[in-house]
């Protein structure tokens, strides 16, 4: 594999401008992440269907492809061939922009997550800050979807999403400060390398707060208020159909991928595991699917909180716990 210095020399020798080199590298990496993500979504949707079916005494998809593996492809073809419906009086720009924004926001988080030694698009030195901050612009997308749909259910869903996601940003960000203190860096690869002993054991409170607020952040049960189908029909995405709806679905699953991957990186030792370094991505994948399974298991077991209970939990339980965690970490480190 060529290092970047060699690449630059190669470009200079052949008269290729640097910007073209940068652009092509970015394009290749984006495509790689994009296709990996697409594959991930297909796998996760299939996994979710099979896990939920197993929990619920059902079979799940069986007909399309071997053991129903191609069911999502069939669904996508169906959604693609749907008519592009705009509700009357909908705000066309907001309505169009919202799914894209949710999708892109979920996607950006993946750029800094290392899945193996040096296997990362951009290993920022503020990686942790980036991965917590940038994906939360998704909430703007949800509000836009809710507001632009000209639908009361959608609007209530959008408002709930805003309240919930903004509230849970705070404990989520505070819960990882203990890790930054222990690792001495916000660079994700450094955090992984610092984990001789997994942080889930050193930071149990931080892990719990992080996992719960992550569930709220990606709107999963028991925090799926924004799309609570028992009262809000389908929340912010009520009016969406066809490919726009599919983008919300993609966004949701990519957010799940990003959240589970971040959990692995922060608390479960990233790519570390027995065997040679080359096996890193495989260990990462095993841990990743473990976390995803837990999240799905929770989803298909628990009922949903009420909106005031969600707020109570976020501000009155998780936030003090996260602060306590910082305090304890600080005391232990200074001893």
């Amino acid at each position: 594999m060529l290092t970047s210095v060699e690449l630059v020399e190669f470009a200079a020798k052949n008269g290729i401008p640097i910007w073209a080199l940068d652009a092509s590298i970015a394009l290749v990496l984006a495509l790689a992440v994009f296709s990996l993500c697409g594959l991930g979504v297909i796998v996760l949707v299939y996994m979710e269907r099979k896990v939920s079916a197993d929990i619920q005494l059902r079979l799940g998809p069986t007909h399309v492809g071997p053991r129903g593996t191609l069911q999502l492809i069939a669904d996508m073809i169906k959604l693609l061939s749907k008519e592009d419906v705009f509700p009357k009086h909908a705000d066309r720009w907001l309505f169009r922009l919202a799914p894209a924004l949710v999708f892109i926001a979920a996607f950006t988080g993946l750029m800094v997550i290392p899945i193996g030694p040096r296997l990362v698009v951009q290993d920022l030195n503020v990686g942790l800050l980036y991965v917590l901050a940038i994906p939360s612009i998704a909430v703007a997308g949800l509000i836009m979807a809710g507001f632009g749909s000209y639908n009361k259910y959608a609007m209530m869903g959008g408002l709930r999403a805003a309240a919930q996601m903004v509230s849970y940003e705070v404990p989520r960000a505070l819960s990882v400060i203990g890790i930054v203190m222990l690792a001495g860096s916000a660079k994700l690869s450094t955090i992984v390398d610092a984990q001789g002993f997994w942080y889930i054991f050193l930071q149990p409170i931080g892990f719990m707060v992080f996992l719960v607020s992550t569930l709220a952040e990606i709107n999963r049960v028991p925090f799926d208020m924004p799309e609570a189908e028992s009262e809000l029909v389908h929340g912010y995405s009520t009016e969406y159909s066809g490919m726009r709806y599919a983008f919300f679905l993609f966004g949701e699953y990519i957010a799940l991928i990003a959240a589970a991957a971040l959990t692995v990186v922060l608390f479960l030792g990233g790519w570390h595991g027995p065997g040679p370094e080359l096996l890193g991505p495989i260990w990462f994948a095993i841990k990743f699917f473990g976390v995803v399974f837990v999240i799905m298991w929770v989803r298909w077991t628990l009922p949903r909180f009420r909106i005031d209970q969600v707020m109570d939990l976020g501000w009155k339980v998780l936030l003090p716990l996260a602060l306590l965690n910082i305090l304890i970490t600080g005391i232990v480190m200074s001893i």
Partner: peptide, 16 residues
């Protein structure tokens, strides 16, 4: 009641 509270799984057990 379970479904309205957001838990989808008990539905299948009761219906079984």
């Amino acid at each position: 009641a379970a479904i309205e509270a957001g838990a989808l799984t008990p539905y299948f057990y009761y219906f079984d």
